[in-house]
Nucleic acid binder design. Structure first.
Lengths: 151, 151
DNA sequence: TCGAAATTGAAAATCGTTTTCAATTGGCCG
DNA sequence: CGGCCAATTGAAAACGATTTTCAATTTCGA
């Protein structure tokens, strides 16, 4: 890792090492806050901006990429070789992945047809996961009508 | 429109009418600021929060939906009957649409296979549009190497 | 017409992201 | 092995878009 970074012109530091290691040890879709908390458990002297900057760095060197769900927080998704889309549950906001190899081929074709040179594909399927559907079914006793109103 | 809103429990006001009309008169992917400016040309007394709230309302009643590109601003895209994806140029940040009827079928299948009930699909193809590619080709004389570094 | 509930505008509060700045550290060069 | 310059760090402040607050106003059904 140290070597990899060096070739890209960056230095290795204790903080950076811990941040990188923690990030890759965590699951997917990590937010700055989550990683910050995690890292802090090991070294409470690390600053928020350092975590943030290193997350950006991880993206810059191509080891991860930002995922934006529109809920206000940027998440960082480890770069995988296999392209995947996301199921985004509108209730619990959890992300689940699915492969999209066959679809990518089509997107590439669509791009070509539109004189667009693609560098990445992002597919998000919004809806409700099983758990949230079950939960709603249970709650669906009273109220029900006056729910949509009042943000 | 007034009637439509009434059935949903909302009232019509002069400001709302202007905002709605302006929004639907504008192209796609409108940001709060853009709509605010537009609306202000007609009635400079309208407040920013009113525009923002009505944009949210338009989404709430299902006439539009938020589009998040990850560049910090939320855009609002008129709801269309025909599902479409977006080409997102990483240089000029312009959005262009493409139909995705055939792909949607596949996404629905994928969802079903994963026990996920979809309510919406979002496809974004990132890359470079023709204009930006041409522009880059022109500039690509000097520098070139030391570009990736230094944010 | 009356009144409850919705809406508005201005200003302030939020909140995640990004920058600033001085101090520290890493790593290459001699 | 020193020394130096650029990279890095941490704290705090700056930013900027979004969201809320609050008092005043307006809408619309009764």
């Amino acid at each position: 890792m140290r070597e990899f970074l060096r070739t890209k012109g960056f230095k290795m530091t204790p903080q950076r090492e811990l941040i990188f290691k923690s990030f890759f040890a965590m699951g997917k879709h990590v937010s700055v806050d989550e990683l910050y908390d995690k890292v802090r458990q090991q070294d409470s002297s690390i600053g928020y901006s350092t975590v943030w900057r290193n997350l950006k760095l991880i993206c810059k060197v191509g080891l991860a990429e930002e995922v934006n769900l529109g809920d206000g927080v940027t998440r960082y998704d480890r770069a995988t070789e296999t392209p995947h889309g996301h199921f985004y549950c509108i209730d619990c906001r959890k992300l689940t992945e699915f492969g999209m190899d066959n679809i990518v081929g089509q997107l590439a074709i669509i791009s070509r047809e539109n004189d667009f040179v693609p560098s990445g594909f992002k597919i998000e399927i919004q809806g409700r996961c099983r758990a949230c559907r079950d939960k709603r079914a249970g709650e669906k006793t009273t109220a029900e009508s006056a729910e949509a109103q009042r943000a």
